[in-house]
Design a protein around this nucleic acid. Structure first.
Lengths: 99, 99
DNA sequence: TATAAATATAGCAATTTTGCTATAAACAGT
DNA sequence: ACTGTTTATAGCAAAATTGCTATATTTATA
C-alpha cells in the first residue's frame, strides 16, 4: 500500500474514530454521572430500579453508555433520590471539578 | 356541590397541576438555558439554526418548552458555539446562581 | 397601520429511546 | 468449581423527539 493510501486510511480512521467518539462522549459522561450517583448512595442497579421505577435493564443500558438517555429518564432517577438535574453550557475544555 | 366534592376536586386539580407542572418544569428549565445562551450570543433563532444546523422550527419548539429536547440536540447547539454540556445532580431546592 | 423580521405552530415520516421479559455474562464468596 | 448476586444484552412494540416544509402569529419599526 502506498504511503499516500496509508495516510488516507489513517486519516479516515481518525475521522471515523473522531466521529464515533464525539457521538458517544456525552453518553459516557452521563453514564459516569449516574454510576457515581448510584454508588454514592450505595445501591445496586436493581435497588435503584426499585427506588426510581426505572427498570434495571434501562439503568444498565444507560450506565453502559449504549445510547444517550432522555432527560426524562435522568429526571426520574434523580427526583426519587431528592436530587434535581443541573444542566448548563460551559466553555469547552474546562472540565471543572465536581467537588 | 358538597364541600367534600369541592375539596376533592380542588385536590385533584392540584394533583393534576402538580403533575403537569413537574412534567414541564425541566423542559422550561432547559428552554430558559437555551434562550439565555442564544441571546448571550446575540443571535436570532434563524441565525442560531444556520450556525448549528438545528432547524429554526426545532429551536423554537425547544425554547417554547413544548417537549423535553434530547441531549443530542442540546449538544449540537452547544458544540458549534464552542461550548459543552455540563450535567449533574444537585440537591433539590438549591437553585445555584449561574453567574 | 403597513411592512418586515422574528418566533410559534402544524402535520407527518423517520429516528431514537423506553419499557418489558428473559437470559447471558461477569463477579464475589465459600 | 458452585452458588448467589449483580450487571449486561437481546429483541421488539410503544412512546417521544427530530427534521422537514409550509404557514400562522407576534413583535418591532417606519
Amino acid at each position: 500500500m502506498t504511503t499516500y493510501r496509508e495516510h488516507l486510511k489513517e486519516q479516515l480512521q481518525d475521522q471515523q474514530f473522531q466521529k464515533a467518539w464525539e457521538e458517544t462522549e456525552l453518553a459516557y459522561q452521563v453514564a459516569r454521572a449516574v454510576i457515581k450517583l448510584r454508588l454514592d448512595y450505595g445501591l445496586t442497579q436493581e435497588e435503584l430500579a426499585r427506588k426510581t421505577g426505572v427498570p434495571q435493564s434501562v439503568i444498565s443500558r444507560l450506565e453502559s453508555g449504549r445510547h444517550l438517555p432522555s432527560l426524562r429518564s435522568l429526571e426520574k432517577i434523580s427526583k426519587k433520590l431528592g436530587l434535581q438535574i443541573r444542566l448548563d453550557f460551559i466553555p469547552t475544555q474546562a472540565q471543572p471539578r465536581l467537588n
